[in-house]
Structure formats: C-alpha cells, structure tokens
Computed example of a mutant assay.
Amino acid sequence: MASQSSLQLGQSFKGSFLRGILADSLTVFWGDWLDLRVRLPQVIASGLVSPLIYIIGFGLGLGSAMQIAPPLGDNYLQFILPGMVALSSMTISFGGTTFSICGERLYSKTFEEILLLPVHPLSLFLGKMLAGVVRGMMTSGSVLLVALIFTQNLNFLHPLFLLLLVLNCAVFSGLGVIAGLNVKSLEGVGLINNFLIVPMSFLGATFFDPATLPIALKAIVYLLPLTYTSIGLRAAVFQPLSEFPWYSFPILLTIAIVLSAIGAYQFAHQQD
C-alpha cells in the first residue's frame, strides 16, 4: 500500500511539474507574441526574399537553361521547392530568435526582467523557442503558398510535411536562443550566420540530392540538421509513404531535446 501511494504521489508530482512547465512556457511565449504580432508583415516578408531569389535564379533560371533532370519532381524547380521551404524556416527561426534575444540583452536591457521571472529555466527556453517556431512557420507558410501556386501539388500540405517543418523550426529556433544568450554583439550574430547558417543553406540538401555525393562529402552533409528536413520534405511531396525517410523525425527530435537541455542550463546560469 505504501509503495502504491508513493507511486501515485510521484506520478501526480510529475504531472503537475510538466503542466507547470507548459503553462510557464506559454506565458513567456505570450510576451514575445504581443511584440511579434504588431510586426507580422515585416516578419513574413523578411524570410521570403532569399527563397524567392533562389527560386527565380536556380529553379527558373539555371534549371531551365541547363535542363537539369532531377531525381524527384517533374523539373528542377519542383525539386528545390521543398528545400526552399526548409531554408526559409531555418533562416527566420534562427535569425529572428537570435536578434530578438540580442535586442533584449544588449539594447532594450529588458532581458534581466525575464531572468527574474519565478519560472523554471526550461520554461524560459521553451517560451523563446516557441516564438521562434511561430516566426519560422509564418515565413515558410508564405513560401509554401508560392510552392502551391507553382506546382498545384497538395502534398505540400501533407501532415508529415508540416510536422517535419515544425520540428525544423524548433531545432533552429532552439539554436537561435542559445546563440542569442552567448553573443556579445550584433557582429557576433553576423559571424555565426556567415559561418553556420549560410553554408548550411547551400549544403543542407536544398539544391541537390545528397545520395549522389562522394562519401567524404556525404559525411559532412549528413551532419547538418537541415539535410534531414530537406530530404523528408521532398519525400513527403514526391515519394510514396513506403519510401519516406522516417529516421528524419527521431534525429531532429533528438537534436531539439539536446538543445533544450543546453538552453535550460544556459538560462539557469545566465549573467546579464
């Protein structure tokens, strides 16, 4: 009886703890959303420019001129469109989150108030990450609309496609939170962007099929989380369910969990 009672008590405590984490995370997110909602057009437009340039330059320009025969899709434009959705979600989830935290830390000096909130450090991280996920989904949603107009392929709205997109936003917004907590200036943000995000934009299987690469390059490309998103999104649109790369989900989820642990630790020890 005693062991059964202690088990029930432990389960009750665990449930209340998780509910508290979720509630506090939503509270932190709501604070960011109040600021975000007044800038929705700018947020959506900011992540749409680069993908549109790539779509026009590579998909309509280079792909048509060289008559590239892609492994999936009817033409090269269709092949790169899922990668463009992944690219836009990565860029804004990371950049928007990093700049938001940097602004609070280095310029408005309101970040100390967040650190004083009586909530678990994990809730602080998850709240900021959720705001980044919303930024990424809004921007990639506009690229999705472009993809639907060009292809009329409703598989761009497939549940697996959307779930993988949310996971990608979670990974890169989590990375953005950690970057925002550590950089000392906006120049530092530009440095991270130039050495991490820009290379990943081109090497993350957005413009090519990584299966065709030499083994040495494969090892590099498959270390990048964007690669698994691009492969999965492309498969959700153009391949049958039996050929879907299910490994993409556990890999991205594991990365998101690891980043959450690192981010919670950072918030717990942040000195600002």
Score class of each variant (00 low, 15 high):
Ala65Pro: 06
Ile53Val: 13
Gln67Leu: 05
Ser50Gln: 06
Leu52Cys: 12
Leu52Met: 15
Ser46Ala: 15
Ser64Gln: 07
Ile53Asp: 04
Leu87Ile: 01
Met84Pro: 05
Gly47Gln: 02
Leu87Arg: 01
Ile44Ala: 15
Phe58Pro: 00
Met90Asn: 03
Ile56Gly: 13
Val43Arg: 12
Ala86Gly: 15
Ala86Ile: 01
Thr98Trp: 08
Gly96His: 03
Pro70Asp: 11
Gly73Asn: 10
Asp74Ala: 14
Gly73Cys: 09
Ala65Trp: 07
Ala69Phe: 05
Ile55Ser: 01
Ser100Gly: 13
Ile44Tyr: 09
Leu60Glu: 11
Ile68Trp: 10
Ile56Ala: 15
Gln78His: 09
Gly73Ala: 09
Ala65Cys: 10
Leu87Trp: 01
Ile80Glu: 07
Gly57Leu: 11
Gly83His: 03
Ile44Arg: 09
Ile68Ala: 02
Phe99Cys: 07
Leu87Cys: 02
Ser89Cys: 13
Leu72Thr: 15
Leu48Trp: 03
Ser93Thr: 10
Leu77Met: 12
Gly57His: 02
Ala65Ser: 12
Leu87Ala: 03
Ile101Trp: 11
Leu87Pro: 00
Thr97Glu: 07
Ile80Gly: 06
Leu62Pro: 08
Val85Gly: 08
Ala65Val: 10
Phe94Tyr: 08
Asp74Cys: 07
Phe99Glu: 13
Ile80Tyr: 05
Tyr76Ile: 04
Leu81Asp: 01
Val85Thr: 11
Tyr76Arg: 09
Ile101Glu: 10
Ser88Pro: 11
Pro71Val: 14
Asn75Ser: 12
Thr91Tyr: 00
Ser88Met: 10
Gly47Arg: 00
Leu87Thr: 01
Asp74Ser: 13
Ala69Met: 11
Ile68Val: 11
Ser46Glu: 05
Phe94Gln: 04
Ser64Tyr: 09
Ser93Pro: 14
Gly83Cys: 08
Pro51Tyr: 06
Ser46Gly: 13
Phe94Asn: 04
Ala86Asn: 14
Gly63Cys: 08
Ile101Pro: 15
Phe58Ile: 07
Thr91Met: 07
Phe79Ser: 09
Gly57Thr: 00
Gly47Glu: 03
Leu60Ile: 11
Leu87Val: 00
Ser50Ala: 08
Ile56Val: 14
Gly59Glu: 06
Thr91Asp: 02
Val49Met: 08
Phe94Gly: 02
